[in-house]
Amino acid sequence: MLEMLTALFLLIGAAFALIGSVGLARLPDLFMRLHGPTKATTLGIGGILIASILHFSDQGQGVSLHEILITLFVFTTAPISAYLVARTGLHLDARNGDNVD
């Protein structure tokens, strides 16, 4: 039962991570590309880490809570990275003279 749940979270997570990267690869401009990695990939890694918690808690060595740290870290840093990349993009566009804003 727990194994099935682990497998489910793994597959959901991996699928979202892939969708985020597909978005990064195929959308036409930088600001649209930003959406894939910041949301889908972040949730994807969240799913994989939940699967990891379930898997290692099932090994009989107590509950594994390590993964919460990585999850929290990724969830707090992903928007910051996205914000900085967006700012960089705006800045470079402004310097090159295309008025995006």
Binding site: L24, L30, I45, I48, G89
Partner: peptide, 26 residues
């Protein structure tokens, strides 16, 4: 094409690598 795209790609690669390592652990 721009530097910002490359930074974004690199950042996503890092996140995916993190996921890959966790998967390897499992």
């Amino acid at each position: 094409p721009g530097p910002a795209d490359r930074i974004l790609a690199l950042d996503t690669m890092y996140v995916n690598t993190t996921a890959l390592l966790v998967l390897l652990g499992i």
